[in-house]
Design a protein around this nucleic acid. Structure first.
Lengths: 90, 90
DNA sequence: CTCCTATTTAGAAATTCATCGAAATAGATG
DNA sequence: CATCTATTTCGATGAATTTCTAAATAGGAG
């Protein structure tokens, strides 16, 4: 994990929206792609960026690949930001 | 302010290091540039990106332009991330 | 095994980004 | 005013990003 990779992943609006969608539970690549105007190939690319950044993980079920939020990296980012902000007890 | 702008600003390592430097208090553009291998022109560009994202603000004192952290935007980002993480009391 | 569906990979075009050297600006000072 | 210093702006260049279409893969169903 690297902060650069994480922030880069978070800098794209489609990728942020994917993460927001996944707050509601796991979704297949197709279900995710259906929420966006971009092609499935483009969304697949975004999912891969999120996966590389360890912000999501995938599990295969038959023909479908499901994606889920991985919150552990978010914790590290939160700590970094809180420290930058000068917080006492992050 | 926009999250996209903020995360994009945070995605660059030089810019993150600038913010970390500014935790110690305000610094002039030249003092900041001295910490990096890049040219002053490049660092000036990074400072401008941080300023556009409202992560820093500047004050002129004579010949020098001082930069300071602006933590108010960090608060919004922290809240967004905490919500994504599914925190109870962010 | 062949076909169908879900998804990814490959390759390409357009855009944005990081960086530099050189020139411009802003203010202080002789 | 002429000049010096600190910093930014300009213009260019190579690298990275986003997006697409088309082709490839993986697994299930007939």
């Amino acid at each position: 994990m690297s902060f650069g990779e994480t922030f880069k992943a978070l800098s794209n609006p489609a990728r942020r929206e994917i993460l927001t969608l996944l707050k509601g539970g796991k979704l297949s690549a197709g279900e995710i792609a259906a929420h966006f105007p971009q092609t499935a190939a483009t969304i697949s690319h975004h999912l891969n960026v999120l996966k590389q950044a360890e912000l999501v993980f995938e599990t295969r079920e038959g023909n479908y690949i499901y994606y889920q939020l991985n919150t552990s990296v978010l914790e590290d980012v939160l700590l970094w930001l809180a420290d930058l902000k000068g917080e006492e007890t992050p």
